[in-house]
Simulated scan of single mutants.
Amino acid sequence: MSDPAPLQNPKGVGGRTLSDTVYEQIYERISAGTWPEGTRLPTEIEMADTFGVSRTVIREALLRLRIDGLVASKQGAGTRVIGAPSQHVMEFAAPGSVADIQRCYEFRVGIEGEAARLAAQLNSKPRIADIEAALEAMDRCIAEGGLGADEDIAFHIAVAQASENDYFVRTIHSVTNAIRIGISIAATLSTRSTAERLATANREHWAIFEAIRTGEAELARERMQAHIESARRRVFVGR
């Protein structure tokens, strides 16, 4: 296996961390086939030397790749590539944005999970009706063959509004661009039809809604977190 090229701009820029930069470039090499499935990656020491960063940075990047399901580590056997995302992900994401989009999904898991929990606790009938209306709009979008980005975002905003906490609402509004990019990547690269992919996402939405409607706070949080993790996998891992 040939040595990878040195990192470009290895120092974190624009608020991005060193581990973001390393994560993205290892991700890119895996998706491009430079390090195909089954490849044993260089040691932490070797990668730290190659990328010009500390072993701590390498460990952080590899941890996120393990969470993605792209690499696995075994005592005494090192780290191997066990899965590969589509090589086209890097083409559809803006330069330097893959790690940022990934960070957005990580952030949303905690934030939106808590918003769903509060929505279920408060159990406001008018707010629940708004969530249901957003889901019905998504159902119509699926029937009409649309992409569903606006409807998807409307659902997440409706759940945030049902928390009756404006900080959650403003947070979701602040990440709508990243959500749209993720939806576009998933739609472009998915091996499934748009209708099938949207139907899967909306089944997850309806399950969240049902937990909110019945006031099951912890279940609502768990289902929202599971949905966002599934959405992340659909974008970055293709499953």
Rank of each mutant, 00 (worst) to 15 (best):
M1W: 03
W206C: 11
A120E: 05
T171C: 13
I183R: 14
A5G: 12
S2A: 13
V81H: 12
S97P: 00
E114I: 06
V175R: 11
E222F: 03
R234F: 03
I26D: 02
A99R: 10
V237K: 02
G83R: 12
R192F: 00
T39E: 03
P36R: 00
R140V: 06
T188E: 11
A158G: 08
V71E: 00
I26G: 05
S19Q: 09
V237Y: 03
A211H: 13
E218A: 07
E164M: 12
F209P: 00
P42W: 09
P126R: 01
Y105Q: 02
A226F: 11
T56I: 06
R40T: 15
G110S: 14
G78D: 01
V235Y: 03
R64V: 05
Q225S: 06
G215T: 01
E91G: 14
R239V: 14
G78N: 00
L62S: 02
A72D: 06
H205F: 09
V81L: 02
P6A: 07
F209W: 07
I67C: 09
I82S: 08
I26L: 12
G14D: 05
S31N: 00
T171L: 14
R234N: 00
I185E: 01
A72Y: 10
R127F: 15
M138N: 06
A84H: 09
V109P: 04
V237C: 05
R223M: 12
G148D: 11
I67S: 14
G146Q: 04
